[in-house]
Amino acid sequence: MNFNWEFFWQALFTPSRQFLDGLMLTIVISVVAMALAFIVGLIIALMGRSKFLPFKIFASLYIWVIRGTPLLVQLVIIYTGFAAAGIFRFEDADLFGLVIRGAVQAAIVGLMLNESAYVAEIVRSGLESVERGQHEAALSLGMTPLAAMRRIIVPQAIRIMVPPLGNSFNQMMKQTSILSIIGVSEMFQVGTIISSATFMVFEIYIVVALYYLLLTTVWTFIQAQIENVLNTRAGLPKAEPVFKRLFGVRSKKMTRQQLQQHADAVKA
């Protein structure tokens, strides 16, 4: 096997401007899509908990359809299918002097819709993990349902939701690699263009994989810090160090201790 080490190191440590633009686009799409997905997912989760039957039916159907169909198919329908059917066409937009291509808009919408269904389930399970008696107690003290949700339920549920939400974002960040199907020049698409021009297929795709690994690793550290802050506020021990998570070195004794302290905190 003829592996061009010189090209590999150059592509890894001094990537081209085109590759860096693709990397930045991957990050921006991931962050924006996840932020919007959380908002939509929260709304869907609250609709699912509503006593108004049409809201509950809509939330259930939304989650069923989105989770039951592939993201790739959803992207093609949103970007190509809608335009072919004359329903809607994503056109390039000018935002404060920055041109946002139609394909990028479709990518954000597609990822947002897909991820929001999973976020809705995470939010629902997080809200349901808080004892119902606390909600009833808040109402008995004169709080409105919205105030009880905002001041009592959500602060407790958010700590439970952070790990699955973080994992969901991690997964979505890697799924941006399929956005090339609708012409988005994210990192994987740029890597494909470079490999076609240089014929360094193996080398460039390893570089792309390492950059995805870098993104997910950085997010793992950020997620750990968020979990530690929330645990500290709740009077719980900090989460295990990130290196232990990455390399699978976990202390069973510490895990049991954390679980017991968590159970005591919930009872309190």
Score class of each variant (00 low, 15 high):
residue 87 I to S: 11
residue 152 I to T: 10
residue 103 A to R: 07
residue 8 F to V: 08
residue 230 L to C: 12
residue 177 S to H: 05
residue 159 R to Y: 06
residue 166 G to I: 11
residue 168 S to D: 15
residue 64 W to G: 10
residue 229 V to P: 00
residue 255 T to C: 02
residue 148 A to N: 00
residue 87 I to A: 13
residue 151 R to S: 12
residue 50 S to K: 10
residue 6 E to D: 14
residue 103 A to S: 15
residue 187 M to A: 06
residue 216 T to V: 15
residue 79 Y to R: 07
residue 94 D to F: 03
residue 94 D to T: 13
residue 11 A to S: 14
residue 91 E to L: 05
residue 130 V to A: 00
residue 17 R to M: 13
residue 168 S to I: 02
residue 216 T to H: 02
residue 221 F to T: 10
residue 126 G to L: 00
residue 243 F to L: 15
residue 51 K to V: 13
residue 221 F to Q: 13
residue 58 F to G: 07
residue 47 M to E: 03
residue 240 E to S: 13
residue 81 G to T: 11
residue 235 G to H: 03
residue 54 P to V: 04
residue 68 G to H: 02
residue 217 T to P: 05
residue 251 S to E: 12
residue 105 Q to E: 08
residue 255 T to Q: 12
residue 37 A to W: 01
residue 189 Q to Y: 15
residue 1 M to P: 09
residue 212 Y to Q: 01
residue 27 I to M: 13
residue 32 V to N: 09
residue 105 Q to S: 05
residue 179 L to I: 06
residue 52 F to W: 14
residue 153 I to K: 03
residue 116 S to I: 08
residue 120 A to T: 06
residue 218 V to L: 15
residue 238 K to V: 01
residue 230 L to Q: 12
residue 213 L to F: 15
residue 46 L to I: 04
residue 54 P to D: 07
residue 267 K to C: 10
residue 211 Y to R: 01
residue 210 L to N: 01
residue 210 L to K: 02
residue 50 S to A: 14
residue 136 E to F: 07
residue 118 Y to I: 09
residue 55 F to I: 05
residue 126 G to Y: 01
residue 28 V to K: 08
residue 52 F to M: 03
residue 192 T to N: 14
residue 213 L to Y: 13
residue 48 G to V: 01
residue 197 A to W: 04
residue 82 F to Y: 14
residue 26 T to W: 00
residue 90 F to T: 05
residue 235 G to Y: 10
residue 198 T to I: 09
residue 143 M to F: 11
residue 183 G to E: 10
residue 187 M to K: 12
residue 180 S to R: 12
residue 47 M to H: 09
residue 260 Q to I: 12
residue 226 I to C: 04
residue 75 L to G: 01
residue 232 T to Q: 11
residue 73 V to S: 00
residue 135 H to G: 13
residue 229 V to I: 11
residue 212 Y to V: 03
residue 22 G to T: 04
residue 37 A to D: 00
